[in-house]
Each structure stands twice: as structure tokens, then as C-alpha cells.
Nucleic acid binder design. Structure first.
Lengths: 144, 144
DNA sequence: CACAATTAGATTGTGCACAACTCAACTGGA
DNA sequence: TCCAGTTGAGTTGTGCACAATCTAATTGTG
């Protein structure tokens, strides 16, 4: 007879725990920038290229407008982004960085190293982990 | 000059994405049991050993009473657990499985295989991943 | 014993996730 | 051209996470 599944054997729980632990490490660092972790992710996308539509941001992050709309309003209230209705397509809202939003990328550059320092894994192990997680995420999305 | 960090280089984003993808795969399966993913985790702990106090559950899962108290109320409303004030220590609330809660472990046994099937990784790769994630989580908690 | 400190759990408030829905703007045939 | 269908964004409702605070029960120490 099969046993009830055990928590400590579950890859999914390992993922869930590691993800929460990582955001917990980032939290005090991001607090200094006044950002939450998902807000930081949105800013990362915008620092790469802007303006971006809500849909486009959602594509990069795997989030829908139900999550992004209120989040972007909060970023706008912080003075980091501006939301402008597109002229060509009145449905689209283009998210632009403000000067303050652009400048925030400077202190943000030090952040990734903080996780690396706290991780207790070698650079190679981190690369390996990132690759495996990428494969896993792609396969999981495939199966949906 | 340092570049702004790129989203696709971030281990933390890989973790965040993989974790959400994993719960997305579980969601339709758990829907059949009437459970959310965190509720399933709590049931996993209780199937191993019960009754357990709220603090004890929180220790296993890394969650506090602010998360668990309402979650356990919902499990109680579903008829899967009972919350009983301990006689010896009136502060403690012991979480007991009901018969229905115990019986739910039977259909739940098939669940972990679903993730394994969807993962597109070999058994060995999954084991390796789980081990690395365990190391990572421990190190991250250490650094707090 | 008295009482300050600690502990278990619950509550409140904020911010994600995500499903389900609404609405306005656009698109593509018949 | 008309209008059914699609699309982009926003809203509503539920359920986590997590910080901060609260209360009541227990414990340790003088």
C-alpha cells in the first residue's frame, strides 16, 4: 500500500520554501529602495526597455492585469512610473519610467550580489540551478 | 560601469517562476480535492503525524499564525480538521484530523507523480534539484 | 507568592496571485 | 459598412504571506 506523500520529499515544497526564503533575504534590501519584490521585478523589466504595455510586462513576468494593474498604480503613486494611454491604440496603457524610476536602477545594481552572498552556493552551482529551474518552468508551462 | 541587473539572469526570478508554475500544475489536481496548495501542505504535515499545534505546523512549513489561523479555520469549515484547545495548556490549539481529513490522504497519494510527470526532468535531476534547493533554503535562512 | 517576561494563537492591515467578470477599443469578414 | 468576435486593461472576490499588534495563559525569578 502506498504511503501518504511526505512533505520533505516534495520538490514542490522545496521550491516554495526556497522562493519564500529568497524573497525574505531581498526584503530588507528592497525596503531601502521602498520596493516590494514583485515591484522590483517590474522595475527590472522596465530598466531593460521602456515604455512597455501592461500585457507585455505580464508576458515577461507571467502575471496578468489583475496583479499588475494595482501594482503599477502603486509604482505610479511612488513616483517611479507614469501610465499613459497610447494614442494609436486607446486600449493600451504604456508604462514609462520617471527620472526617479530610472535613477533607482543605480542602487539596485548591488542587489543581486546580496542573494549570491547569502546563498552559500558557488557561482557554478547557482548557474546550474538557474538552468535547471528554467528547464523545469518551461516544461511545467508546456504541460498546462 | 555596471549594468542594471537583467531579469533573465536572476536566480530569484527563476525560483519565483518555477514555484508559481509548480503550484499552477497542482491547482487543477488539488481542485478535485477541494484544497489550495498551502492547505495541501498543511494536510501533508498532519498526515505524517497529528494532532499538531499551530506553532508546530508553522515550524514545519515556515509559516506564522497570521497565515495559519485563517487557513486552519477554512480547513475546519471544510470538515477536514478540528481545532481543540489543549487541556494542559489553554494557550495551545491542537489540530486534529477528522475522518474525512484522514481519508483525503488516499486520493492525495497520486498527486506528487503528477508534478514529476509534468516536470520533464529525470528522477535523478529532480533529486539533485531538491537537494540543491534544500541547501539553498538552509543557507538563506542562515543569513537572516 | 508576586509579577515581569515569555509564549501560543488570533487579529488587522498591506500587497501580491489568480479566477471571473466588465468594458471600451479595435479587427476582420460577410 | 456593420457587427460579431477579439483584445488590453481594469475591477471584484478569495486566499495566501507577513509585519505588527493584541490577549490570555504560562513560566521564571526574586
Amino acid at each position: 500500500m502506498t504511503e501518504a506523500p511526505r512533505l520533505d520529499r516534495q520538490v514542490c515544497f522545496a521550491l516554495y520554501s526556497a522562493s519564500r526564503a529568497a524573497t525574505a533575504v531581498y526584503r530588507p534590501v528592497l525596503d531601502e529602495l521602498g520596493l516590494t519584490y514583485p515591484q522590483y521585478l517590474v522595475m527590472l523589466v522596465l530598466w531593460e526597455d521602456e515604455p512597455r504595455g501592461v500585457k507585455e510586462l505580464g508576458g515577461e513576468l507571467g502575471l496578468d492585469s489583475g496583479t499588475l494593474s494595482p501594482l503599477l498604480k502603486r509604482l505610479e503613486a511612488l513616483g517611479l512610473v507614469e501610465r499613459r494611454r497610447s494614442g494609436e491604440d486607446e486600449r493600451r496603457v504604456a508604462i514609462h519610467l520617471t527620472t526617479a524610476g530610472r535613477e533607482l536602477s543605480v542602487p539596485a545594481r548591488a542587489i543581486p550580489q546580496r542573494l549570491a552572498d547569502a546563498a552559500g552556493l558557488s557561482h557554478g552551482e547557482l548557474e546550474q540551478l538557474r538552468a535547471t529551474l528554467g528547464k523545469l518552468t518551461a516544461a511545467l508551462h508546456q504541460s498546462l
